[in-house]
Design a protein around this nucleic acid. Structure first.
Lengths: 221, 221
DNA sequence: AAATAAATTTAGGCAAACCTAAAAATTATA
DNA sequence: TATAATTTTTAGGTTTGCCTAAATTTATTT
């Protein structure tokens, strides 16, 4: 696998993430994601196409090919392993890791990343609950699990709420919990099975077992 | 402290290292060190002077000022902490760490470096035996110590040999040990106080207590 | 299907960091 | 000290990755 510039790596990563939802990515979409102008995107798409990382037809959007996807996944692997390292070993909080990992991810030494992976005990998910691609670029598809099964200090993205009553929604609204909210469990109390959770950088608060049992989150493995 | 580009950081670091020996650094000297052409050096010196990092008079060489030195020391701090991390935590060998640290050193998040320092237990010297600047940029002056006092797996640079006989020099020559050679102690044997040492990437070998007692190395603290 | 709006691309520029070749300053030498 | 050799700087280019403004293509309306 060849080496790519920091800009190229950021483009590949952004395209990978945008592709997930849409089938193809548009110039404006990517420009917005990368905080650049559409003209810059067109420039770079020509380069990445020339380097055989993606399929691109003028005016028709673009999509990573198999090789481009593989490169994107190694970058995501680096990013998530560093996030895990920062949270686990350097005691960075959940919401601080991303920014630092954005820089570390561009250090491309393969042995470094594989040794780091080993040092960390081959973690499967990063501190946000997103799956970490393995040495071969294989990435686990995330599954829904109940928040009560979520490991401590590992975020999950709220994917569904089983009870649909207005009572529970009132409570969730009050707590600022909706689909897409990232939740991290701080503590579980055996006495009443209540748990202390945290959302983003807000102060932690406690929720009852009843409520917890209704919250499902996306989580790899 | 402001942020500098990777190139600027590499220039500052190189000037710092060259300054140590000479009083002032010349264009050609720096060009050789950085594998660039003299014209590129002149370009960059103008920029670094404009940014108040060094003193520079055309045709008269250059030298970091107090601020430039401080910046250089934070880069060296990052580099050596990462080297320590790579050797100690990721089991990289002595001669592999430098190259990887050259990349990691440009990640400039201060909290990252200070937390890493703490995580590593505030090490004083890197795996090559060079001192690591502290949070405030203070760097210990290296002192000579006998190789028998050198901690295991930490390199020291041969600074002097106390015995000056031709017999010892013959032995040292055979072993490829001269002033400037970097030595790492692998093991010490209590039985006869002999020790197994390693030079660069050569295979390790054993030396007697008598010989060891005559080898002094530069080593911080 | 024309006209208008929106998205995308092209054209031409800019700054950073490098380069080569030529000019200028400094240093060494006859 | 004048000339030669060396060092350094200047002048003018190149590539990467970005920009603005204008042109073009595609999509949406009427």
């Amino acid at each position: 696998m060849l080496n790519y510039s920091i800009s190229e790596e950021n483009y590949l990563k952004a395209i990978y993430h945008l592709q997930k939802t849409d089938g193809t990515v548009s110039t404006n979409e990517l420009a917005k994601e990368l905080n650049t102008k559409p003209a810059s995107i067109t420039d770079m798409m020509k380069k990445l196409k020339a380097k055989k990382l993606l399929n691109y037809q003028p005016y028709r959007g673009f999509r990573l090919n198999a090789y481009g996807t593989k490169v994107a996944l190694t970058i995501i692997r680096r990013h998530r392993l560093w996030e895990f390292f920062l949270a686990q070993k350097l005691k960075f909080s959940w919401d601080e890791v991303h920014e630092v990992a954005e820089e570390l991810e561009h250090v491309s030494n393969k042995k470094l990343i594989d040794r780091l992976d080993e040092f960390l005990g081959f973690p499967r998910v990063d501190p946000h609950g997103d799956p970490i691609p393995d040495v071969n670029g294989k990435i686990e598809v995330s599954k829904k699990i109940n928040i009560t099964e979520l490991p401590l200090h590992t975020a999950g993205t709220v994917a569904s709420i089983s009870d649909q009553s207005s009572e529970i929604l009132e409570l969730l609204e009050h707590r600022n919990i909706t689909i897409g909210t990232k939740i991290e469990v701080n503590k579980k109390f055996e006495f009443d099975n209540s748990m202390e959770i945290k959302i983003g950088r807000q102060a932690a608060f406690t929720i009852s077992e009843q409520l917890a049992k209704n919250i499902f989150v996306d989580h790899a493995k």
